[in-house]
Each structure stands twice: as C-alpha cells, then as structure tokens.
Nucleic acid binder design. Sequence first.
DNA 1: ATTATCATTAAAATACGATTAAATTTCAAG
DNA 2: CTTGAAATTTAATCGTATTTTAATGATAAT
Lengths: 227, 227
Amino acid sequence: MKLLLVEDEPKLISFIKRGLEENGFETDIAYDGNVGERLAKSGNYNVIILDVNLPYKNGFEICSELRKNNIHTPVLMLTALGSTEDKLQGFDAGADDYLIKPFEFLELLARVKALSKRNTDDKTATNVLRFADLVLDLNTKTVQRGGNSIDLTAKEFSLLEYFLRNKKRVISRGELADKVWDINFDTGTNVIDVYVNFLRKKIDKNFPNKLIHTQVGFGYILKEAAE
Amino acid sequence: MKLLLVEDEPKLISFIKRGLEENGFETDIAYDGNVGERLAKSGNYNVIILDVNLPYKNGFEICSELRKNNIHTPVLMLTALGSTEDKLQGFDAGADDYLIKPFEFLELLARVKALSKRNTDDKTATNVLRFADLVLDLNTKTVQRGGNSIDLTAKEFSLLEYFLRNKKRVISRGELADKVWDINFDTGTNVIDVYVNFLRKKIDKNFPNKLIHTQVGFGYILKEAAE
DNA sequence: ATTATCATTAAAATACGATTAAATTTCAAG
DNA sequence: CTTGAAATTTAATCGTATTTTAATGATAAT
C-alpha cells in the first residue's frame, strides 16, 4: 500500500509520515506542487494526500490536472480552508475527500484507509451479486433464492451471473450468445431459449414474483414485476 | 443513479430527498434501521446515506452488517456525533465517508457525487429518448406517455425510436422502409402506413395533442402541434 | 369531379418463443 | 481406456403474437 503526501510544512510532514508508516503505509513525500504532480502522474499510488497551499501549483490545480490525464487515484484534500465553497472547489477538482486542518491523526488515517479500500477491493470485486431475494455467490458458486439454495450447472450459473450484472436492462439473444456462449456469428441455435427455460424452472417456477421476463422481439430482462 | 437514504427525521428527509432528486439522484427512503438494512442488502444502490441514530438498529450496526454480507456499496454516515471516536467507529464499521450534522446541503451533494463516481457502469445508466410527454427507454424497451406506460411491439418500438431520433423533420416512406424495415427496393407494400396507424392508436389516440402528423405527398413528421 | 394519396380494417402469413425429447458432448469413476 | 451419468446442444412441435398483405373507405390535391 503506497501513499503520496504532497505538503510543504516540515512539521506536519513528519507527523503524518510517521503515523502512516506505523500503520503500514509506505509514504512518499513531495514538498511542492510541481514535484507532487509529477509523482502523482506516475500512477503508482493507492491514495494521494494533497495539501491545497503549495509552492508553484496548488492542490486544486494538481487534482484537476490528474483527472484530466485520466489518473483516478483517490485524492484526499488537506487544508486550513474550511468554508463550504472551498470544499466544493476541492470536490469539483475531482477530490474524493476533504479534511480540514487541524485534524486528529486518527481521522486522517481512517479516511485514508477508506479511500485505499476502494481500489483494492474494487478489483477483487464484490463476490456476491444480489437482486430481490436472489443471491449469487461467486466464491462458492452457489445461488439462493429467499433462503432456499438452488443447484445450477455451470452454464446456468454464468447465464444468471450475466443477468445479475445487467439487471433491469433488456439483453438480446445476440448479446447472450456473445458474452455467455462466445458465439459471435449467427448459428441458427436456440440454446439460449432452452437455457432461459432451465433457469426459469429453477429460479422462478416456485416463486410468485418472477424475475426473468421476456421482451418479445428484443430479448430477456431481469426485473421485479411485469410492467 | 440510485440512492438510499436511511433517516428518521421527516424534516431532514424531505430536505435531503428534494435536493438530491433535483440533482438527478433517484432516492429511496427508509425510516428505520430494519427497513434500511433490508433495502441496502438488495444491492441496488449506488450510494447509501446512513444516519447513526435510528429506530431498531443504528447506522454502525447496519454498515457492519452490510460489509459482513459482502455489500460494498459506498456508505456515507450522517450524524450529530462529531467526536473523533465517533467518526472512527463509523469508519471501523466500514463507512466510506462521515459527515457531521448540521451540514450544508452542497457539501453532502459533493460527497455523494464523489462516492458515486466509483461504481458507475454506463450499461445500466438510463438511456432514454424524450419528446413532449413521450419517453422511450432503450434499456428496458418501454414507452410512456404522460406517465402511462404503453405496450409496443418490436417493430412499433423501432419505428417510434426512429421518429424520436429524427423529430421535427419530415421522414419519407422510402426512408422508413430503408432504415426501419431494411427494404431498399420498391415492393408495393403499405406496411409503413399500417404501422404508423398502429402507433397512432397507441400513442396519440387517447391524447388531445397529436405527435405524429402526415405531410401529404412527402411522409410523416413527429412534432407537437399541427402547422 | 376526378384522381392520387392516405387511413383503416380484417384476414392471411409468418415469426417468435416455450417446451419437450432426443442426440451429442463432457468428464469423472471404475 | 471404458463406461455411465450429467451437462450441453440440436431439433421438432405447438400455440400465440406479430407482421404483412390486401381490400375498402376517407381525405386531400389538381
């Protein structure tokens, strides 16, 4: 876990750096806006802590510049400017959080952790997809509806997974063929229809409110009620 | 973009809900901890705003419970408790941000936007064409006029879609044949006339101001009033 | 008034989707 | 390596909704 701290007050730097490193964050320092921006653009950090008042280039400018360059590293703005307008300016520049000096170190730490959490477990992604009373667990490859566990085959499972990742949107047979079956030319097959039928038997048949609906001429949609 | 607001103070609710909806966030409300947790577990929200003091179950508990269930929806904690320990407790429970009451609405909005920024997949994003009080949703393949939903067949839908994409312009039968029916030679058909008639029955018949007008000798046009 | 253009309706043709059964493939156990 | 069960795919049938055709009535243009 690597952080970048862009700050020019030596006392604050050592205070923050020590605290963060005690908590397992490797911390690089930039003492001015130019160096800060250059380092930030490397894209090697999990979180960037950005002071607003900096030599050469202020925190707002740096942050906008990063977003413009498609660097989406979470940014925590740090400043003595506490008015709502100042905060809004920070968020407008693309910051993810905004903390007013003076602050307690533990709050800074908590906010940094919250920010770093995202782009780590974002990648490992959510392991559980839900819709209504339907639960699909990607880790255990199990599915439940309303507490009852349901046995699905591999294809049925990926089909349902695709439905859950695209809920409330009509999905064409062509899209399913492509994304779930890897068929990208038109074979005259009806596997999809057959599998939707399999899924319905297992997921909808014994429940009053159906989840898989067909939109004649377009495809299928996962949603709660019929229009 | 869909939000869940779990809060029990009616005045605060209406204040927040109105503000958020003015900014394009569809907002569901839960008035107590139990309902809030159940809704939150559906996984259907982009951001959850969670008050701490709630009937039945407090915000900290709800948040921990969500994380335990692998629901990683960003949570913004909202409370009058402003001590650092309280904030830490919130972050420990898995919150992503923590805002102290009273707050300025614009700051809440900025923080909600920052949180929602993450998990926006463009596929589920609303994708609608509008004209007058007519709404055509390309994701759900549904159509509404003045709040009443209207059932269209696939051909009717594509025809209306073409009208909406070319509103206020006269469209010839030849163009419709080509673009909506893929007929590019002259079969002596009158399908187009028949389908315009179908559409009119469904979208214009029960409404005083007609939208589909015929330009004799040229074709059809989608516009508000007759010349 | 006459003709071309458009609206409307009903009937015919077709396409679409649900369902079932049978054929094929996959894969693990013997 | 064989065998057999489970999973996947193909194929065929059936009912229904959709699409198209075709014929007649209405409206607008010349």
